[in-house]
């Protein structure tokens, strides 16, 4: 597999949200606006890339049987770092994302990439894979966030473009499910050709 393919597969072909259906909790939970989706996506990308790097570096010294617990500790450390750093420098976003930041630990996407890719591949490839998957995840979250924000509050990235009430349901919980359902269907339509 060439480098470009490792990087780009996360966007459409193996998009973690639309195709692999991983990490659905944060996908639905934080995408009330495009900014929140982007913030969550980037935080996850950071954790993904860093844990892929470390896992790839230490893969040959970790005994096979304690592989999973070691990975969990590595991932949890980076998640806590992200949590603390966001609290210090972007407090408003931190309080919006709330519980979903520590929950990056149990995002199947992060663990999945560490186990399925980084523990078997070289450092360079693992970084590319983490970056591609992470940005693909961020792309999906931002897209869903933007759709919900546009339909629900008639604004995009916090900028109001019409003075009227949007379709409330899209900002509220049901809108997350409906928005994602139609985006997945749309993605299938596009990739089917």
């Amino acid at each position: 597999m060439n480098k470009w393919k490792i990087f780009s597969k996360g966007f459409i072909k193996e998009n973690p949200v639309f195709v692999l259906l991983l990490g659905l909790c944060p996908t639905l939970g934080v995408t009330t606006s495009a900014i929140n989706g982007l913030g969550m996506g980037l935080a996850t990308t950071f954790v993904l890339v860093m844990s892929n790097i470390v896992v790839s570096l230490v893969k040959s010294v970790i005994p096979n049987k304690v592989r999973i617990p070691s990975f969990i500790v590595i991932i949890a450390s980076f998640v806590t770092i992200v949590d603390l750093v966001m609290k210090a420098y972007v407090p408003a976003l931190h309080s919006q994302l709330g519980l979903f930041i520590p929950l990056i630990v149990v995002n199947c996407l992060v663990m999945g990439r560490a186990e399925a890719f980084a523990s078997k591949n070289s450092l360079g490839d693992s970084i590319l894979d983490g970056l591609g998957m992470g940005l693909g995840f961020a792309f999906a979250l931002t897209l869903l966030g933007a759709v919900r924000e546009i339909l629900g509050s008639l604004s995009i990235f916090g900028i109001q473009f019409a003075e009227a009430d949007g379709m409330l349901v899209f900002v509220l919980a049901p809108g997350a499910f409906l928005g994602l359902a139609y985006l997945i269907a749309l993605m299938r339509k596009i990739t089917d050709k």
Partner: peptide, 28 residues
């Protein structure tokens, strides 16, 4: 090659990984 799992190196690895994590987090 996967490293062989013996009780000693499993315990040692887990201990080292957690210690490194704890140290890094204390710093941050």
């Amino acid at each position: 090659a996967k490293k062989e799992s013996t009780l000693l190196n499993m315990v040692l690895t887990l201990f080292l990984v957690t210690a490194a994590a704890g140290l890094a987090l204390a710093l941050v």
